[in-house]
Design a protein around this nucleic acid. Structure first.
Ligand SMILES: [Zn+2]
Ligand SMILES: [Zn+2]
Ligand SMILES: [Zn+2]
Ligand SMILES: [Zn+2]
Lengths: 419, 419
DNA sequence: AAACAAGGTCACAAGGTCAA
DNA sequence: TTGACCTTGTGACCTTGTTT
């Protein structure tokens, strides 16, 4: 049938354009801001969305720490677009704080998963920011209205929690639990779960210390949760430490005390931020998580599509989460992610024939993993596997879903990063 | 309906993946890791399980060796997912080491046999790794308990041995024998037998030298036996040699000495990798044995499932070898492996295509939403031939197995290679 | 028909350049 | 020094053809 034409046109499959993620350019698509200075980001560099300037600065500085002089302002400079060149020590510190690392870099195209993740986060951030703007600052902003808040989504996410914690544990951030538990962040769990991946990454840069001996000086002790830059750039200065220049005032006890304090302040977005580097830094259980996460995402997305009303709640603002229509596809699906009753029912899974195919379809993406994790890599990897059933159960739903989306006129999104 | 969906999904050229984005093949069910860098493998490429990056790298590099500059670290770089782009010479060397070769490629679907083999190896590796981790390094770890050790299994494998050696002979690696004989590798024969296929393949890349004249420079001298990764990962570092770039420091005596030293550094995964290329390099009697072997495998697998205790031996650690439940499937089924209890059970995913369009929302203007779609998917295959015939054996058992697994929360395993 | 891998395409990031 | 721009090359996707 139709496909045929697809076949006929080899490339036109492309018509739809691959998702492009463009940060900035202005307009469209995904706009991301430099996590260091706030200017529109040019791309994802050394583990974080940054502008060309911060990218170059970090690249140069990383290999030439001697060129950085001590801060004259007690290392309390707030980096922004205008003053970013005023204090190199603080700029570098900020770079590290947002997770930049030479060791974790990656090349190549970003997976769609990554792009989606970024998108979602962005939405969240915006929502959060909006809420904060109109709300009070002292009290935590109400959770933004989007699929992430959707109960079903959260439900789905919940299962991931553990993995996330595990990751943290591995990293030595037990305290993370506490912080995450804090109500400040909107539905921490939910966020964590989906963002969990990133959280791990973010912190991972600490690990990289070994890579550049010189960098050791700038290592952050333990990272507090990294807040999102965009939201509140100032809010999150990581406790200074280690190197006097970057972290001149660091004091262990001091840090410990603030750890908790900081967390609430932390912006959710950071947590969400797309993980730093992708591929490079997977955590051990990352894979496992990846699939689950992905599934959750999809589920959430799908749900949101089905019940537009929900989303619409208050976000009439542009964000629209609404439109994010993701089509995931597992052909056959694997497991279902969904927890949703409806979906669940479908799968009888049990006796399914076993699928020996080697490539999975499922979900996990690499990048996701990458996104999240880093590190170590040690042994495990894992991943869950999943079964797939081939059953098609979902076809009907699937088709209908597709159809629906088409009807709605939602178009596929362009995830291109750059212009 | 369907056609419609075609329409809907521009991309649907992608077989199943209507998805817009697919996670990427990452890995999947059968989780295999890239034998070069350790990241989840996207499939079996050029003779080894590798990620997309290493696959592309090898493909590009093979035809353009001039682009590879000499290692600045004395050719001792340890390749991992984070640093794989840092030293092309070492990355290529590692590719060759794990058996990648342009000449040995094969296409098409892989037999379940092959898949099973991969699975088993994986288990072994994990077990071995676990053992090594907790055990001592100096002494060879005891052979992991799994079907490979099963007498019947070994018996079946044995037939291939000769062919392997023959290959080596052809390559002029008589010395291979010696090395293989070396005790370092745990139960060489037994392993060889099962791994024989692979082993043979692994080494085969040497043969390919002729294929690409330029590649000659990178030829490995003699390959030691490739041990299974799992067993004794370290055991097998191949001696550097031939081309200065790839093997600049090679020196027979030197190598001999370092053999042991290097090993530890070596990644276990390497050894296990399922054989390199398939089709192309079957040995003469391979086919004959194949069926028998297959049966043994199945038998072993089934047995292992029944008596989980066996596996459990010592690897309680995370890896978990744990859940690998292999179910062989008869007609319909492939095998399923499940690792995560919770996840697994769920549902099948729906395959809806989600629309990722981003633009909409957030930021900028909606108007332009671009479309994007993408998807991807791949396919996979195998090579061993054979099908399984019999599937029958175990239907009952199979079913019960499946059931058990469900109960346990283990899901059937999906042996699909790619997503 | 499916499942796969080779190859091709091209989104993207690291680095290098050089005018300010 | 900075950072816009360019070059190099990585790797996520996609298409094709092979094999089961
Ligand atoms: Zn910046
Ligand atoms: Zn300062
Ligand atoms: Zn790799
Ligand atoms: Zn090197």
């Amino acid at each position: 049938m139709m496909q045929t034409d697809t076949d006929l046109n080899p490339y036109n499959a492309y018509q739809n354009a691959p998702i492009i993620f463009k940060p900035h350019p202005g307009h469209n698509q995904m706009s991301q801001t430099c996590k260091v200075c706030g200017e529109p980001a040019a791309g994802f560099h050394f583990g974080a969305f940054t502008c060309e300037g911060c990218k170059s600065f970090f690249g140069r500085s990383y290999n030439n720490l001697s060129s950085i002089s001590e801060c004259k302002n007690n290392s309390e400079c707030i980096i922004n677009k205008k003053n970013r060149t005023a204090c190199k020590a603080c700029r570098l510190r900020k770079c590290l704080y947002v997770g930049m690392s030479k060791s974790g870099s990656r090349y190549g195209r970003r997976s769609n998963w990554f792009k989606i993740h970024c998108l979602l986060q962005e939405q969240q951030q915006q929502a959060a920011a909006a809420a904060a703007a109109q709300g009070n600052r002292t009290t935590p902003p109400p959770p933004p209205r989007n699929m992430f808040n959707h109960p079903s989504y959260l439900a789905g996410m919940s299962c991931r929690q553990p993995s996330r914690k595990e990751d943290l544990m591995l990293l030595g951030y037990e305290e993370y639990k506490h912080s995450s538990a804090s109500p400040a962040v909107s539905s921490p769990d939910s966020h964590n779960s989906d963002s969990s991946v990133e959280v791990g990454d973010r912190r991972n840069f600490l690990i990289r210390q070994s890579v550049n001996p010189n960098m050791a000086l700038f290592q952050l002790p333990q990272l507090p949760q990294l807040p999102f830059a965009d939201l509140n750039p100032l809010a999150m200065m990581p406790p200074p430490r280690v190197h006097q220049i970057l972290f001149p005032t660091y004091n262990a006890s001091f840090y410990a005390q603030h750890q908790s304090l900081l967390k609430p302040a932390i912006e959710p977005s950071l947590i969400n931020s797309p993980s730093s580097n992708n591929n490079n830094r997977l955590e051990p259980n990352y894979n496992k998580c990846a699939e689950e996460v992905k599934r959750y995402y999809l589920d959430a997305v799908l749900k949101s599509q089905r019940s537009p009303a929900i989303k619409r709640e208050q976000d009439e603002d542009e964000d629209d989460t609404r439109e994010i229509v993701v089509s995931m596809t597992p052909p056959r699906s694997p497991v279902a992610v969904s927890r949703s009753p409806s979906l669940a029912s479908q799968a009888p899974s049990q006796d399914n024939p076993i699928d020996l195919s080697m490539k999975a379809n499922s979900s996990t993406s690499d990048e996701m993993r990458t996104m999240s994790c880093e590190d170590s890599d040690l042994s495990d990897d894992e991943h869950e596997k999943r079964s797939s059933s081939n059953s098609e159960l979902g076809d009907d739903d699937y088709d209908s879903e597709v159809k629906r989306s088409k009807i709605n006129g939602t178009t596929p999104l362009d995830l291109t990063t750059k212009v």
